[in-house]
Amino acid sequence: MDIDTHRHFIERMHWDEVAQRIEAGAIAILPIGAAAKQHGFHLPLNTDRIQAEWLAGKIAERIDALIWPTLTYGHYPAFVEYAGSNTLSISTFEALIREIGGQILGGGCQKLLVLNTGISTLAPVDRALTRLDRTRIRHLWIHEGPRYPRVARQLAEQGHGSHADEMETSLMLAMAPHLVDMARAEASPIRNKETPGSLTPSDPDSPNYSRSGSYGDPTRATAAKGEALLAAMLEDLHEQAAAFAAQGGHQPAAMHSVTR
Rank of each mutant, 00 (worst) to 15 (best):
T70F: 06
T70D: 14
L71C: 09
T72V: 15
Y73Q: 11
G74Y: 03
G74H: 00
Y76P: 00
Y76K: 01
Y76N: 11
P77F: 07
P77L: 10
P77A: 10
Y82K: 08
Y82V: 02
N86V: 14
T87D: 01
T87R: 06
T87I: 02
T87N: 02
L88T: 02
L88A: 10
L88H: 03
I90W: 06
I90Y: 04
I90E: 09
I90K: 06
S91H: 14
F93S: 01
E94A: 11
A95K: 04
A95Q: 07
L96H: 00
I97W: 03
I97Q: 01
I97H: 02
R98L: 12
R98Q: 14
E99K: 13
E99W: 00
E99F: 08
I100Q: 07
I100A: 03
G101I: 09
G101M: 12
G101W: 03
G102F: 09
I104K: 09
G106K: 12
G106I: 04
G107D: 06
G108V: 00
C109L: 05
Q110K: 15
L112A: 12
V114E: 06
V114N: 06
V114Y: 06
L115C: 07
L115F: 10
G118S: 13
I119F: 14
L122F: 07
A123H: 04
V125P: 01
V125K: 04
D126G: 14
D126V: 01
D126K: 02
D126T: 07
A128D: 05
A128T: 10
A128W: 08
A128C: 12
L129K: 02
L129Y: 03
L129V: 08
T130E: 15
T130G: 01
R131D: 06
R131Y: 12
R131Q: 15
R131S: 13
R131H: 15
R131E: 10
L132N: 11
D133S: 14
D133M: 11
D133C: 09
I137Y: 13
I137N: 11
I137L: 13
I137S: 08
R138T: 10
H139M: 04
